[in-house]
């Protein structure tokens, strides 16, 4: 299959066939890689580019997505963005006969949902969750944060989707929050398997995972078990979280519209914040923690570097 083409084209040819190669063909591939250092180098370039491609923004509703009428059920009532993010997950999440519904909380509102199998989901404010009436073992977190106390069933794992990422319980209590392309998972009990299909990473109790869908990167860090889902008692724990996402987390709990100045919003913040639920008290506290000033503009609270002229 390879004669007459240059090495890069050969490398691409092999790469394209990976998903369908038999073990004999894999042996041939290894022999090809070993035959010439230039083969290995060319293939490496192709594979690196391909790994980066995982970071490409997911296309918005695509004209060629297969016609699956039931997808519409998921999209109904979802925001355009949530529907777009979830588009690729849907075919996985759906089983024939699924009856999808969306549960949403406003910022500052929290709500507990109990599924048919006994699994309890405590939703923080500003959260959108898609569930299936006929299948309590699958859920999708499109935005916001929730603590999942999953009733373990050895016969059928609970799978939580978020964007293109997925988590599978191994009998567990865990907190998940979604901020744009960043997914935070913290496990209080049991364990959760991240990306169960391909290259599973096991997240054990006392561990937090940060996945960045945009740069295809995952980091694991320890987290105190009693800090998991701390928002339920007004305690928010952050681990190198950009301040922009900190603002979003506070918004979920306080329901207040808090913005960080663009100069600050990318800055990572690590530590715990205790919230009273009253933005008038919480905003000055947070501003002091990050060494910044604050002001109020109607319903919006703005935290900006001390001395920066108001804009």
């Amino acid at each position: 299959m390879t004669e007459g083409r240059d090495i890069v084209d050969q490398a691409i040819g092999w790469h394209l066939r990976h998903a369908e190669m038999s073990s004999a063909e894999w042996h041939d591939f290894v022999a090809w890689l070993e035959a010439d250092a230039a083969h290995a180098t060319a293939y490496d370039r192709v594979a690196l580019d391909d790994a980066l491609l995982a970071d490409l923004p997911r296309p918005a509703p695509a004209p060629f997505v297969p016609a699956r009428p039931r997808r519409l059920a998921w999209a109904v009532g979802g925001t355009a963005m949530a529907a777009g993010l979830a588009a690729l997950v849907m075919p996985l999440a759906l089983t024939p006969g699924s009856v999808a519904y969306t549960v949403r909380t406003a910022p500052g509102e929290s709500r507990t949902v109990t599924l048919a199998d006994g699994t309890r989901i405590e939703m923080n404010g500003g959260t959108t969750l898609r569930l299936d009436r006929n299948d309590p073992r699958v859920a999708s977190l499109d935005a916001g944060e929730a603590v999942f106390a999953v009733r373990h069933d050895g016969g059928k794992a609970f799978v939580l989707h978020s964007g293109a990422l997925a988590l599978q319980d191994v009998g567990t209590v865990f907190d998940v929050s979604r901020n744009g392309t960043r997914l935070d998972v913290a496990v209080a009990e049991g364990a959760v398997s991240f990306q169960p299909g391909r290259e599973a990473i096991l997240i054990k109790a006392g561990t937090a995972l940060v996945a960045r869908e945009d740069i295809h990167q995952v980091a694991l860090t320890p987290v105190p078990v009693d800090a998991v889902g701390g928002w339920r008692s007004g305690r928010l724990t952050f681990n190198a979280t950009p301040l922009g996402d900190v603002a979003e987390a506070i918004r979920r709990t306080d329901g207040a519209d808090i913005r960080f100045d663009p100069d600050l919003s990318a800055r990572p913040f690590t530590g715990m914040v205790r919230l009273t639920g009253d933005a008038a008290k919480d905003v000055p506290h947070i501003a002091a923690l990050v060494g910044a000033g604050w002001r109020r503009d109607g319903e919006r609270w703005i935290i900006s570097p001390e001395g920066k002229a108001g804009n």
Binding site: H18, M21, S23, W26, A47, L48, A51, R198, E199, A200
Partner: peptide, 27 residues
């Protein structure tokens, strides 16, 4: 960590897994 996941062609599956792992490490 693998449970309950029947694999059609286990050898090919393992090669894919190795190739993916190599790609992740290279990246």
């Amino acid at each position: 960590q693998f449970v309950d996941r029947p694999v059609a062609d286990p050898a090919a599956y393992l090669f894919r897994m190795a190739a993916n792992l190599a790609a992740d490490r290279r990246l």
